[in-house]
């Protein structure tokens, strides 16, 4: 522990009963915890969907730039969005957007101090998953009807 590379390492400094310094152990997480629990799983998914939504927003920027550039540029964008890869991206983005939205409502509810107990957490977690599925299917129903 001669030199610290990261400011967070300061929180790992502990002392033995004889006063000598020791590096506190890091809690084992990825190897030990069951990551497919609804609690931790949805927490990880919320972060993952946030990142995916951020990356995917580049497609929105592209679409708007294409619409501003003219019919030819928009046709190119529309060609991509109606290709197999494009539909895959859009379908993924729809699910990601709805999940992050519903999980966000759940987080705002927690921030307001509601539903912290485990049974409520399981219930709202399941509700988020069901709502994401239903909203994604409904969105694509609307999308396919107006195609």
């Amino acid at each position: 522990m001669s030199s610290m590379k990261d400011a967070r390492e300061a929180t790992f400094i502990g002392r033995r009963t004889d006063g000598t310094r020791i590096r506190r152990p890091l809690s084992p997480h990825l190897q030990v915890y069951d990551m497919v629990q609804i609690t931790s799983g949805l927490s990880v998914l919320n972060r993952a969907t946030g990142i995916a939504w951020t990356v995917g927003s580049a497609f929105l920027v592209w679409w708007l730039m294409a619409a501003a550039s003219g019919p030819q540029a928009l046709a190119k964008a529309q060609w991509f969005f109606s290709s197999f890869l494009g539909i895959l991206v859009l379908a993924g983005m729809t699910a990601v957007a709805w999940f992050h939205t519903f999980a966000g409502i759940r987080h705002l509810m927690w921030d307001a101090g509601h539903g912290f107990d485990l049974p409520s957490t399981w219930k709202t977690g399941k509700a988020v998953m069901v709502a994401t599925g239903v909203a994604t299917v409904l969105t694509w129903l609307i999308a396919l009807i107006s195609w």
Binding site: A75, L144, W147
Partner: peptide
């Protein structure tokens, strides 16, 4: 999301 879903078949 709903606005975009309603414009999948729209022209330029």
């Amino acid at each position: 999301i709903l606005s975009i879903a309603l414009h999948t078949g729209s022209s330029h």
